[in-house]
Nucleic acid binder design. Structure first.
Length: 617
DNA sequence: AACTTCACG
DNA sequence: ACGTACGTGAAGTTT
């Protein structure tokens, strides 16, 4: 048996690494006793993060409590693998930091099914996110094990990941290769593997205490674990990519980017991504650039370039000026490059051997609790079907997309108790249009589609906290018109302003933290307290989706679910039952919220996601 | 690593 | 006192 000692928060802790059958017996004996005392912290070390990649392997499984850690060398196979599996099946209650990763690793490697481990798991990352959902860049501690341990357990606890990266470098391997290549006999590797479970074990009770001190609603803990399980299952399922389509598409877009890039080069722009070059060339051509970036450079983004190319927001000719050929070329080269690289090629680069993408679905990512998804799947162009066409439903299936209707406006009406909005939503029926309704309230029967657009902008301005200038730019209307619209908006829906002021006051009295209707702690930035309206609505809208996802699982729809997209669930279902299943999704997404009906509409498409955006297939 | 841009809800 | 668009992930360039 190898043993390592270390000091954590003044206590000497021990990391045990069994090497013989007797050593494994000692571990089993420890586990029997520890399991009777309380939860066991669990962690895994693997060859990398690409769980569904061809080379992926599980290397070690660690178990521990506050004082002892056991590193089981799973990759040795035989008794070691058997011992780890048996231990995982036996533990009554486990603590895991960022459980979804380890659930999927252990499931993928055939150690223990996700469905078996999930009901016994407490995820310390979920507890941490409920205490402070901010990322480090936003002034929060973040939810990584290192900063949390430093904050709550021991300020001098080693950064085990960074420490191992140093070891990898000294061994002459890259950061990525290190996890697969470092010998499992390396003392730092083993010590840090053990420390992670000890830190997790110590974190859990402290985070529990802090949760209670802050008054985080207890029910959020099991609720978030349910959602985490549902998201992990979707991640395991993944999405099918049409490789015969994506390959040629990636090549075609790369070619297009190259052609427009060559045009830009004629004007001295050798790198279309260089704002500095683009700005210099445009100024050299006699264009006047006025907008500046946060850091003071001249802005050359899409909003600046489109007018120079005489194009509107939909890339249609305006006819107001002679198009600047460089602005036009840069716009087109950038779009082709982005679509080709990030999306078409991205799908192919992230493919598993089975031809699927398994995006990481983070159920509690944003500070409002919103989910996030990797591999670009939350950002695919919606103005055109070409990119989404590359994502397929299963063989014999069709795509179903079910989305909430105007969810954030309904949540706003519910939370701020906006009388005339609620009346509209209650009496409006199936295809109620809140923005046209608002336009009619203010302008009567004279209201036009353009009025609708203006009041839609004013409505979003309320939820997001935008000002007249921004709203004017967004909607394309004049500032005077927007100013009138916002004033009229406040007259018909006076409750919104009052609620915003009330919420800011409550946050101020609660240490700059707003408590959402679902009991979430939402820290506000001192200099943008107006964001509270957005946080209140966005976070509850997220919980409305979370509740609906739990209802979908209870209704047997989880096997069809593929992706959550804020106000939408994308699903793949057998073509013959699609209508019926779509109706079930609608039912799961339909319920009242403080007297406001939340409603959803399902669209049944064809084989590809693009079919819901106009593609033939 | 910071900054900028671009894609979404 | 006033006014502020919110929340993400990925890629490329510059430092």
């Amino acid at each position: 048996m190898q043993e390592f000692r270390h000091t954590i928060a003044g206590d000497t802790i021990t990391v045990h690494v069994p090497e013989t059958a007797d050593d494994l017996d000692a571990f089993r004996e420890w586990l029997r006793q520890a399991d009777a005392r309380g939860p066991i912290a669990v962690d895994t070390e693997t060859t990398g993060l690409d769980i569904y990649g061809p080379e992926f392997r599980l290397r070690t499984v660690q178990f521990g409590d506050a004082h002892d850690a056991w590193v089981i060398l799973y990759e040795r196979g035989g008794d070691f693998a058997e011992c780890a599996r048996d231990a995982l099946q036996r533990c009554r209650s486990v603590l895991i930091h960022n459980a979804a990763y380890d659930w999927l690793v252990l499931d993928r490697c055939g150690v223990v099914p996700l469905e078996s481990l999930v009901p016994r798991t407490t995820d310390t990352r979920i507890l941490a996110a409920l205490i402070d959902p901010r990322q480090p860049s936003e002034g929060g501690a973040g939810t990584a094990l290192k900063p949390l341990s430093a904050r709550w357990v021991d300020a001098s606890a080693p950064d085990t990941q960074a420490g191992l990266h140093t070891v990898f470098r000294s061994l002459g391997v890259t950061k990525d290769a290190g996890w697969a290549r470092i010998p499992a006999t390396h003392p730092t590797y083993l010590l840090y593997a053990g420390l992670d479970v000890i830190l997790t074990a110590r974190l859990a009770p402290v985070l529990r205490v802090e949760m209670h001190r802050l008054g985080v609603r207890d029910a959020l803990v099991p609720y978030e674990h349910e959602i985490a399980r549902i998201c992990a299952v979707m991640q395991r399922t993944g999405l099918l990519v049409d490789q015969e389509y994506a390959g040629p598409l990636a090549r075609r877009l790369a070619e297009e980017a190259e052609q427009y890039g060559a045009v830009a080069a004629r004007y001295g722009v050798t790198k279309i991504g260089s704002g500095e070059q683009v700005a210099a060339a445009l100024v050299g051509m006699g264009e006047t650039l006025t907008e500046r970036t946060a850091a003071g450079a001249l802005k050359t983004d899409k909003a600046v370039l489109l007018p120079l190319a005489d194009l509107d927001r939909d890339w249609q000719r305006i006819g107001a000026r002679t198009p600047n050929p460089l602005a036009d070329a840069v716009l087109r080269a950038k779009r082709a490059a982005k679509w080709g690289t990030t999306y078409a090629q991205g799908f192919l680069s992230n493919l598993s051997p089975a031809g699927r993408i398994h995006p990481t679905i983070s159920p509690l990512a944003a500070r409002t609790g919103r989910m996030s998804v990797t591999d670009g799947l939350h950002q695919l162009p919606s103005s055109d079907h070409v990119i989404r066409r590359a994502i397929l439903a299963e063989e014999g299936h069709v795509m179903i997309s079910t989305d909430f209707q105007a969810i954030e406006m309904r949540v706003l009406a519910a939370l701020a108790d906006v009388r005339r909005m609620k009346e509209g939503f209650l009496s409006g029926g199936e295809n109620f249009d809140i923005h046209m309704y608002t336009a009619r309230l203010i302008k009567g029967d004279r209201a036009t589609k353009r009025d609708r657009k203006v009041f839609k902008g004013a409505g979003f301005g309320k939820v997001y906290g935008g000002g007249v200038r921004t709203l004017a730019r967004q909607t394309g209307a004049s500032e005077a018109e927007i100013a009138h619209a916002v004033a009229a908006y406040d007259r018909v829906f006076p409750e919104i302003k009052r609620a915003a002021a009330r919420w800011q006051r409550q946050a101020f009295q609660n240490g700059m933290t707003f408590v959402s209707a679902t009991g979430r702690q939402l820290p506000l930035d001192r200099d943008r307290t107006y964001a509270v309206t957005n946080y209140a609505c966005q976070s509850v809208a997220r919980d409305v989706l979370g509740q609906a996802m739990i209802e979908m699982d209870s209704s047997g729809l989880l096997p069809y679910m593929r992706l959550p997209i804020h106000d939408e669930i994308l699903a793949s279902a057998p073509a013959r039952e699609a209508r019926e299943i779509a109706h079930e999704f609608e039912r799961c997404m339909t319920f009242p919220l403080y007297g406001v009906p939340i409603v959803a509409e399902a669209e049944v498409g064809g084989r590809s996601w693009g079919s819901l955006y106009g593609a033939d297939y």
